[in-house]
């Protein structure tokens, strides 16, 4: 098939690539090329079907515990994420959020006013204050809610820095799947009162949004804090 070794194609690397038998530099080269070359994409799809045949006959049932743990974990994630997915469609993938931050767009900043600083104290010191916690890349992210105050506070957290023009925005994920903005987080390193009433929410989610925030999330959530109870 030397006739196919057209300069610029990656024919000699496609088969090793289909087997993951390439180093990182080669993988990058192949993937760059695939972006623009339908011929090589077709060839790769073809080779990958052959690769499927390599593991024919090696079937081995996983230990039963795997299924149980998976379904549990998936159910836990779905409780938080399903409303987001339903709303945004399948392109709004939770997985990338779990893997870390994905930067998008360009953004602005919103001020923390004195009125909101006061609200922080009112919520955090409320008799019925409840702390809800999740993790983002090992960093705890805490939301405090108070039904009495009808407010929620996002506690100061060491969130990853965002590129200029991008900002964290908080969202109330309602039981019925509606997603309401809870405001742009001007400074994650300070406690911030969220806009709106947390009542009827299953979670507070954070996403990275463009300047000034968005009416609805335009990127994947980077973390969701379930509001249990």
């Amino acid at each position: 098939m030397n006739g196919n070794e057209t300069e610029g194609h990656v024919d000699d690397l496609l088969a090793p690539y289909a087997l993951d038998a390439v180093d990182d530099a080669e993988r990058a080269r192949v993937e760059d090329h695939l972006e623009t070359c339908a011929h090589c994409r077709r060839e790769l799809a073809d080779l990958r079907e052959a690769v499927v045949g390599l593991s024919d006959g090696h079937e081995l049932a996983p230990p039963p515990g795997v299924r149980e743990r998976l379904l549990e974990q998936v159910a836990a994630e779905a409780d938080v994420v399903r409303p987001l997915r339903r709303r945004r469609g399948p392109q709004w993938v939770w997985g990338v959020a779990a893997a870390g931050l994905v930067a998008v767009g360009a953004w602005g900043v919103w001020q923390v006013f004195d009125e909101q600083l006061t609200a922080v104290d009112q919520v955090v010191q409320a008799q019925d204050a409840v702390r809800h916690e999740a993790e983002l890349d090992g960093v705890p992210v805490v939301v405090v809610t108070s039904a009495e105050q009808d407010r929620a506070v996002l506690e100061a957290a060491d969130l990853p820095d965002l590129p200029a023009g991008q900002v964290y925005q908080a969202w109330f994920v309602r039981e019925d799947g509606v997603i309401d903005s809870a405001g742009v987080v001007a400074d994650p390193a300070s406690d911030a009162a969220l806009e709106g009433d947390p009542e009827g929410s299953t979670a507070v989610a954070l996403s990275v949004e463009p300047e000034g925030g968005s009416e609805q999330p335009t990127s994947e959530p980077v973390v969701a804090i379930p509001l249990e109870g």
Partner: peptide, 26 residues
């Protein structure tokens, strides 16, 4: 599954788990 259907995910797992696990073990 992409739409968040847990039953579909379970079915997917049931019909492909041995295939995937066998490869991973190998």
């Amino acid at each position: 599954t992409a739409g968040g259907d847990q039953q579909a995910f379970a079915l997917l797992y049931d019909s492909t788990g041995a295939r995937v696990h066998g490869l991973v073990v190998r």
